[in-house]
Write a protein that binds this DNA or RNA. Structure first.
Lengths: 247, 247
DNA sequence: CGCATGTTTGAAACCTTTCAACCGATGTGG
DNA sequence: CCACATCGGTTGAAAGGTTTCAAACATGCG
């Protein structure tokens, strides 16, 4: 294995969690040519209505997708962690319907569409794996939609805490789990559709209830069961368990 | 053309709006074998966590996808009109993460996954077209997420009225447009996350403002511009314009 | 007719936003 | 080194929007 881009091998892990690939296919993913790019915090590196020619693999840092209304109000519709492909869907729909913005300083690996098209054309399993990866992103979005519409403020905030914990810990969450916390309360407000002020109050409630707390740049799970109950959280939508053979 | 299933030719139209297909590919879609099935109103014909082997093409009637929280509360995450494939994504993710329920009496054409896999394997353009179809569904979901989180109740209801009008009229909406209205106020509440009572009040406000009205089983646009402004609606997410050559 | 379903309305309770202010940490320039 | 600006977090009180509860009305259908 000559080329070894960590962002790609993280993405490959993610693909292989849900799809069966052979050595050639693995190698094709790991050898994808691209350029690294450092992105400053709070920078839209994909703008709304851009016609996109590249996909962005997140190497480090955190980025989010933002949808918009005609009056310019924005809402976060997805969070991309290292190992995620932020806009794989652009392969089949290049006219971007959401902006992608860095949350903190982010390192991305930028790959021209052409190369993805080529390896997808050469392997049925890979093209399915890509499609599946997008489908799982859509499943997460669907759950965000449900929680944003059906949960009270406390539940929404708790739900995101649960999700972040699962995604950062690959599904293994328990009392005492802790992980790096990179979002501000304003970001939580962008995700939940609440005001930052109210997010603050909900975080306090969660803390005072002994479910979880954020101190400094770290989140600590104090009582996972309590947090899950607040959030009515069911982690299956994240598809973090290895899927059974899927053609 | 021997086989001629209207549901499939509607779906093909939808695919060709966004993808370029040749005669063989067209014929492959139109010849997909399947069974018609009549579904009574308010029936979950795909249940949560089912392991799905079929995709459902909607021939007539209206169906919706429903997500769920752990406590059983439900939220509609998509509406499927005739010509839509209700769960094409199940091709790559058979474990259903949302239920699909008929809204009124619905005629579906049920196709075994195997046949979709076969024609997708035979044609790169088709497999891209399928993936793209799913991606556009995801774009609609994303916009629902934005409107549900960012709009006040009046805007949410107006937004769905706008969307339904565009989807039923293929994007051509104007003062005086009217189309069959099949949703109850409870369904609107399922979509917007509001209570049915409040949906009722918002519909009245929209009516009294002279923007739109629902009488009997029909919706009438009275003032399209006014309705769009209320909803901060931008129809581009529906991708109803014919897309330029997309590989 | 009687029943089920969907719509309509009012009033009180509740939740979230808004506005305003303050705190603490961090970083910058004089 | 301190003054100052900025950013994120915190808190209180009033205003506003939405839900809840309860009841009544309309319609279609057996």
């Amino acid at each position: 294995m000559i080329n070894h881009v960590p962002a790609l091998s993280l993405w490959l892990d993610r693909l292989e969690l849900r799809s069966v690939l052979n050595d050639d296919e693995r190698q094709a993913v790991l050898s994808l040519p691209g350029q690294f790019e450092v992105i400053k915090p709070n920078h839209d590196f994909v703008r709304l209505d851009d016609n996109v020619n590249h996909v962005y693999s997140i190497a480090s840092g955190l980025t989010g997708s933002f949808g918009q209304l005609k009056n310019g109000e924005r809402q976060m519709t997805a969070l991309h962690l290292p190992g995620n492909m932020a806009n794989l869907h652009s392969i089949v729909l290049p006219s971007s319907i959401s902006a992608i913005r860095s949350i903190n300083e982010t390192l991305v690996y930028r790959i021209t569409h052409k190369f993805i098209h080529t390896i997808a054309a050469d392997s049925l399993a890979l093209s399915k794996a890509f499609w599946r990866d997008c489908t799982i992103d859509a499943a997460v979005l669907s759950q965000w939609s449900v929680m944003n519409a059906r949960l009270p403020a406390l539940g929404k905030v708790a739900h995101i805490l649960c999700e972040m914990c699962c995604r950062f810990s690959n599904g293994i969450c328990q009392d005492g789990s802790s992980f790096e916390w990179q979002l501000t309360q304003v970001h939580l407000a962008d995700i939940t559709g609440l005001t930052a002020v109210h997010v603050n109050r909900m975080l306090r409630a969660i803390r005072e209830d002994g479910a979880a707390e954020i101190v400094g740049r770290r989140m600590h799970v104090l009582n996972w069961t309590k947090l899950v109950t607040m959030a009515k959280f069911d982690p299956r939508y994240l598809a973090l368990e290895k899927l059974a053979e899927l053609l």
